[in-house]
Amino acid sequence: MEKITQYAKVIYILWLRQLKRYSRSRARMIGSLAQPVLFLVALGFGFGPIYQKAGGGNYIQFIAPGIIAMSIIFTAMFNGIEVIYDRQFGFLKETLVAPVPRWTIMLGRTFGGATVATLQGMVVFCIALLVGFRPESVLMLPVALVFMALIAFFFTAFGTAIASRMEDMQAFPLIINFLIMPLFFLSGALFPLNGLPKTVQTIIYANPLSYGVDGIRGALSTQMHFTFRLDFLVLLAFTALALALGSYLFSKIEV
């Protein structure tokens, strides 16, 4: 029991650290909002008329959940990858010699990173409201929040897992271009999942983000490809897996 309270405190202090770092870095906050805003405006207004002509309805309604998801995965992934910064700037050592199991450190970091990413998603949601997005039902907002948090958790843990095996920032552009971008584009964030070629569809079905986007979209705009139950279970399973893998790899770090 004593141990559990201690672990909870450790997780809390690491969570708090992530939040403080985020709130103190204006540049980071603004920088991470620029991209989703650009996407909302450019895609929403640029593709809107085409999408409408093709009979898809209001594109902002369709795409806003996808952009919210995008801002979350980028922020979450960056937060996970912060392990490498901490390694380079030396602070990681301080947490690695702490007299607690390394998984508590990993979990605290992940909680913090995921919280920041979820907050970021909420800010983008508010921006989407400003450019004309209207959620179907206020009552479903908590459901959307659950899916936002799950995506945030999955990607923070995933980022941590990858960063635990990396010594420096060199692989960073590779991760962005060959992992994050494909995951985002092949998730149904930007286009409906109906009537796609078989191979593309298979990839999309294997992508955990597809279920997250579907869940958020289902809650915010009622357009859904899967069901809430499937979305939730798949995402939960992926998140548990990423947390387990991340904890394992993090506990093996040598500096």
């Binding site: 403080k20 770092r21 050592k93 702490a98």
Partner: peptide
Amino acid sequence: DPSLDDELTAFENLEFHGVLYD
């Protein structure tokens, strides 16, 4: 080599350590 969190204050760095060590 350095091992502090530069984005935290002196007190916060120590507080963080104190919590880690219960």
